[in-house]
């Protein structure tokens, strides 16, 4: 049974190399011996053009279990992002990444990354994961924007 996740991830890797949106990247982490870890992907999400996140490329680690795609991967920005729905640990809080909410096995690395990119410009303030970013977003948007733009400039594409 454990072959399901592996086969699926191999196929997703092949598909991602052929088709992904501009500025996105994602591939299984390379180990020192040259082999790769299919269950841990190093990904990048570009800041949407025209948004306060534009110009940055945000590195994200995706960790899968043998239960994928029945269960979603854990997605974690490294470093974390100053955004209301990103935990201080970097973990992304998003309904499509929650198996009890909107996760569906038909989602893929490609569509997850696109969903997280959308979250950057559409925070959900009814379910904050990070106090500091949530407070500035709500009480001082100018400061929130300044922080985001600074963060974007500090995280250029690789």
């Amino acid at each position: 049974m454990s072959g399901i996740a592996r086969t699926r991830l191999m196929n997703e890797h092949k598909a991602f190399r052929k088709d992904h949106k501009v500025g996105f990247y994602g591939s299984p982490e390379k180990r020192e011996d040259g082999t790769s870890d299919l269950f841990k992907w190093i990904c990048g999400i570009p800041g949407p053009i025209g948004s306060i996140w534009e110009g940055g490329s945000y590195r994200l680690i995706m960790e899968f279990t043998e239960d994928y795609p029945s269960k979603p991967p854990k997605c974690k920005f490294t470093p974390t992002l100053p955004h209301p729905n990103i935990y201080p640990s970097g973990t992304v809080c998003l309904s499509i990444l929650n198996e009890d909410k909107d996760w569906r096995p038909s989602l893929s690395v490609k569509t997850i990354l696109e969903g997280i990119q959308d979250l950057l410009v559409h925070p959900n303030i009814s379910d904050p994961a990070q106090r500091a970013a949530f407070d500035t977003y709500r009480d001082n948007y100018e400061e929130y924007e300044r922080t985001a733009r600074l963060f974007a400039s500090q995280n250029p594409p690789p």
Partner: peptide, 9 residues
């Protein structure tokens, strides 16, 4: 020009 493939330059 920077060329990227499969996460690497």
């Amino acid at each position: 020009v920077r060329f990227m493939f499969d996460g690497n330059r």
